[in-house]
Amino acid sequence: MTSSTELDQERIQLLEERARFVRTETVRLIDIAKTGHYASTFSCAEIFAVLYYDILRLRRGEPDWPQRDRFLLGKGHAAVGLYPLLADWGFVDHEVLNGYTRLGNPLGDHPDMVNVPGIDFSSGSLGHNLSVGLGMALGARYASEPFDVYVLLGDGEQEEGQVWEAAMAAAHHDVRNLIAIVDRNKYSLDGPTDEINQVEPLPDKWRAFGWNVHEVDGHDIVALTTLLRSIRDGERTAPTVVIAHTVKGKGVSFMEEEFGWHLGWLDTEDERDVHRELEARK
């Protein structure tokens, strides 16, 4: 945890490097599985990096520390990018990563709290985790614990009715320690969200449900970090949502805004090109 005044060049470089690490590890792990959600993970790589290396209050090697901030990955299909960070925090053995999705390995395409230390709640069926986060945030209140609960939602996930039931209830119960982040990458499995089932106007909807609403470029490390710090450290008057405008497949030119890459697999030559492109962004 770092205070709002210390966002220096060194920190920015660290966060950029961690986002790149999310992407390169995602490519490596999906090559083991031979299929996976590259593009959905690339759109939230900076969000993962900023949360895990600047915002969340965590203790290395202590995934069950009771006062830790909780992080729930509502869009569970991006778990492949989260596992390397859990290993980096000492929650999961690095060796386990190498068996990603193989028979009996705890790391599947979607996160599993029963088998993976550091996963605060399972997901995979979209729409559940904001309600779970609401329950955790209320639990913090009842136990007088200081932790915050962050829930990363997909924008396709906004089509789930349960999201809006949770949104309504969280505002009603004035749950200020609940922070939702929407990865607004504009695509779901079936195509552009605007064509499949219009989710806009998202900021107005969340506002109407009683939430404090912020919008940010989800790939701008400085803007994202500054905003999340201000939310974490500032006075809150309601549950908070950050709509992070992102690019599906961000970082790999042929995947960007190509919804066919929601689920896929790179062959050896393409994988080499992807690594080259990710390295060139340093």
Binding site: A33, G76, T101, G108, D109, H110, D112, S122, G124, S125
Partner: peptide, 8 residues
Amino acid sequence: LGFYGTSH
């Protein structure tokens, strides 16, 4: 859905 896990 094999390694997509229990949710799937």
